[in-house]
């Protein structure tokens, strides 16, 4: 029974969206260029953020799972902080570091004229900041569960650390990496607080779907519902597709 209640609690709000959707005007609303622009931006930035997380998150997960250094427990805890931090706070923190007056952003702006806030790159950074822990935790779990004796076997065959990682460890934890990447992508797609704080809101450049939904709510609830439906449909379709293809065994 609690399971059914739990399911109902999760599904009912989604049904509410469907019931309240303005089906009659749906096609016209969907065809609006602003909707398409926001959707395209969301998909692009979430994907780029996921790539960024993979590039930096997988080695980090490896370090946390296999490395031994003082304060490893503390570092492990720190990595998950963005998960519990309100995303808006994350956005402010990003501004303080990468902003025009920020610790890193300041010198960057002065030297190269590069500034992240209010750019699509800024959206990617904000999404990656919030979503990376999901990837790191997933990959770290897979790495800790993996049998290290295969890595030893590879070493006796003459494989150096990097070769072992690339040709043995990574393929063996691939399901974990895939699961982590999907979680990470989904989190990036829904990211709102850090994005609007760090990257601002400009249609076509930094206005992702969640931002469009929020602003649409100010004026036109129906428009917000339509946008939410689009986001819901796209994410469910992609998650379902990936799950079947990659996560069959792991899921």
């Amino acid at each position: 029974m609690p399971a059914v209640a739990g399911l109902t609690f999760l599904v009912l709000p989604l049904l509410g969206l469907l019931v309240r959707a303005p089906w009659a005007t749906l096609p016209r609303r969907l065809a609006e260029p602003a909707v398409l622009a926001a959707l395209r931006l969301s998909l692009t930035t979430a994907t780029l953020a996921t790539v960024l997380c993979l590039v930096f998150g997988v080695p980090l997960a490896w370090l946390l799972a296999r490395g031994s250094f003082p304060g490893r427990r503390l570092v492990r805890a720190l990595v998950t902080v963005p998960m519990v931090l309100p995303p808006v706070v994350g956005g402010v923190a990003l501004l303080l570091v990468f902003g025009r007056r920020g610790l890193v952003g300041g010198p960057l702006d002065a030297a190269f004229g590069v500034s992240l806030p209010f750019t699509t790159a800024g959206v990617v950074v904000a999404e990656a900041f919030v979503a990376m822990p999901f990837l790191v935790i997933s990959v770290q779990g897979a790495l800790r569960a993996a049998d290290t004796r295969y890595e030893e076997a590879a070493a006796t065959l003459g494989a150096g650390r990097w070769t072992v990682f690339r040709r043995v460890t990574l393929p063996m934890v691939a399901p974990g990496v895939a699961a982590g990447a999907v979680l990470c992508w989904a989190r990036a797609l829904g990211e709102f607080g850090a994005t609007i704080t760090f990257a601002g809101n400009f249609p076509g450049r930094t206005q992702t779907m969640p931002l469009a939904v929020y602003l649409a709510l100010e004026q036109d609830v129906d428009a917000a519902i339509v946008l939410s439906l689009v986001l819901l449909t796209v994410s469910v379709a992609i998650l379902a597709g990936l799950r079947d293809r990659w996560l069959g065994g792991a899921g």
Binding site: P117, F118, I196, T197, N201, F202
Partner: peptide, 16 residues
């Protein structure tokens, strides 16, 4: 550069 969701957010960008 940005269309903020409310006046406080716009102001915060100035402050920062």
């Amino acid at each position: 550069v940005s269309q903020e969701q409310d006046v406080k957010a716009a102001l915060a960008k100035v402050k920062l």
